[in-house]
Design a protein around this nucleic acid. Structure first.
Lengths: 203, 203
DNA sequence: TTATCGTATTGACACTGTCAATTTGGATTG
DNA sequence: CAATCCAAATTGACAGTGTCAATACGATAA
């Protein structure tokens, strides 16, 4: 039996596709059920068959966004040779600046259901992996005189905060005055140490 | 003649008062023009005489919130004796955790007009003061081998990021495993140095 | 008294999310 | 093949929202 012959791309995927276009163009508030339906060429109530409500649509989008971010981390880590912990952090701000709408959505608790088990599990798994990579690359943690969670929280908060503040326009993109490195790299050096776990030669 | 007999407190201040009640109870999205008008006991279009649109109301609220934050910084600095830079950072997360709705509003670019000159000026002035305090308390900056803006950006981003992530519930309130200090303090130690610019005895 | 002008009210419009009732069309039966 | 069934899409409605236009109100000024 040759499987169910799908007559056209299922509406659900078309809806999500259009929703992402709206998200990138107009931000989270532009993603209304009715606008998505219009963009997909269906009636305003058609999406209700695939998403219980607006929050569920946005939660599903957030889940995909997070997966996309993790892909970026994996790619970056294996390509540039920087250690995995730094890849997590640098990719976070890079992603936030490349896709402001998607990034903003991720942290809008009112629009995304953080209690969603799939989403929560994905996030916890990533954070644990990040902490492990961080511990492996830090001399002070290895020596046992530094709380890995404090370091991890500090680094994650810094990367996230920088992404948010850059995307609001409060911070300008500048380089460190002494090293010439991009600001984010210099900031990570401050926290993680410029001398430890560097893989690239100082050029 | 005993002065102009004001029949009742001016509507504008009553509106803002009710708006803050709504903000604290329901978050930024609960502050609708109509809800504020209802709470103040006037018709739905009455606020239009005092705020051109919803964005302007929320921008005015954001301005007051920022001023309130600066007051908290000043009080904290003069009471605890910690240096001014640390007071800025600690107060930021404290405020964010004490008033989640107000803090969330501050960073909602879609709801608050960051280009508002008064608001922008207030923010820049505070940030410059923060940088100056930071420079005064840092040996490495004083020695001239550390970009003060990188340090300031890192610290500000970290404090803001931590406030946001704590208020979403991603991070739990815990103490540093080695020093026993609150997490935020331990994080600041990582960045600013635990040994420099400490005013309080180690108890 | 009359005129004026800032302020509040009423009413409307286009938009939103969500629910109920209905239609549709393809697959699954008898 | 024809009858049935059922998921999926449509239509229509309701209560909200922000915002605009026209109106009514009231104190002050002439």
């Amino acid at each position: 039996m040759p499987g169910p012959r799908t007559t056209s791309p299922p509406l659900k995927s078309r809806l999500i596709e259009q929703a992402f276009l709206l998200l990138d163009r107009e931000g989270p508030d532009g993603v209304t059920i009715r606008a998505v339906a219009r963009a997909a060429g269906v009636s305003h109530a058609a999406p209700a068959n695939h998403f219980a409500d607006r929050r569920q649509l946005l939660t599903e989008m957030a889940s995909r966004i997070f997966r996309q971010y993790l892909d970026m981390v994996a790619t970056r880590g294996s390509v540039s040779g920087e250690n995995r912990a730094r890849a997590y952090l640098a990719a976070l701000t890079d992603y936030g600046l490349s896709f402001p709408g998607r990034y903003q959505l991720l942290w809008r608790k009112d629009l995304v259901d953080w209690q969603n088990p799939a989403f929560l599990d994905q996030l916890n798994r990533a954070y644990d992996d990040f902490l492990q990579a961080l511990a492996a690359g830090s001399r002070r943690v290895a020596a046992g005189d530094q709380d890995i969670e404090t370091l991890g929280t500090a680094a994650w908060a810094m990367a996230h905060g920088y992404a948010v503040l850059r995307s609001t326009g409060i911070f300008e993109p500048r380089s460190d005055a002494f090293t010439g490195k991009p600001r984010m790299e210099a900031m990570l050096d401050l926290l993680l140490g410029a001398d430890e776990d560097q893989r690239l030669p100082p050029e």
